[in-house]
Amino acid sequence: MNIIVCVKRVPLTQEVDLEIDESGKKIKEDALAYVINDWDNYAIEAAVQLQENLGGEVTAITIGSEDDEEVLRRALAMGADRAVRIDPGELVTDGYLDATILAKTISGLEYDLIFTGVQSEDRNTGMVGIMLAEQLGLAHAAVTNGIEAEEKAAKVFVELEGGIDEVSRIQLPALLTIQTGINEPRYVSIMGIRKAKKKELKVMTLDDLGFGAEALTPQTQIEEVFLPPETEGAEMIEGDAATIAETLIRIMGEKGVTV
């Protein structure tokens, strides 16, 4: 079972006061600390677990600068066999371009499964995995929270609204976008870090992949980025349980919710 995992380094935004830069179209990212996208951490673990049980190779791929290799080294330390970094140079990508670049990179590789995170913590669009499946002509399942792999197929558990799971069989090769909570990602170990040092980490440019300049035009244009306006503070409801319930029902009624 050969598996490709697409991973990304994202800014850590919890407990940070985000600022918009002068252009009004970007978050100031210079001073932020970076970590692996949480969903991708689960995707790596899922891939490594399958590889440990069924054999084969795990390849981790990211698009980014040398600093972004941190997430590839992490994947290697967790058990991936090799890694590829696509250096986009000066190109600023959107989800569509990420999918396009990944598709071209992956089309030259052998694989049974491709994993991406459901979404990334920075842009949260949740579209790269699905667009990548489309560009490669693969079947896909999004928001996967369980996998039972067989020879040429996999039983896939997909999370629907309201806590319902949908179970289906998918023919391989296929792409799954992985949901957090599907497993318990392992800690990076010192042994893992030492082994990672000996594994292949290949760097490719867009030229290496054979892209001409005109082929890579973003399909998304950001008009404006703004912080949500500050609203009035929450209304604290006081009293015993019965009074609180009564007040809640009244407020919901006023807002047009039928209880």
């Binding site: 941190e70 992490r74 800690y187 990076v188 170990s189 893992g192 990672a196 040092k197």
Partner: peptide
Amino acid sequence: GEQKDIIAAAKEF
């Protein structure tokens, strides 16, 4: 890179 990874791993653990 290795030292950065050791620090990150220790912090995470």
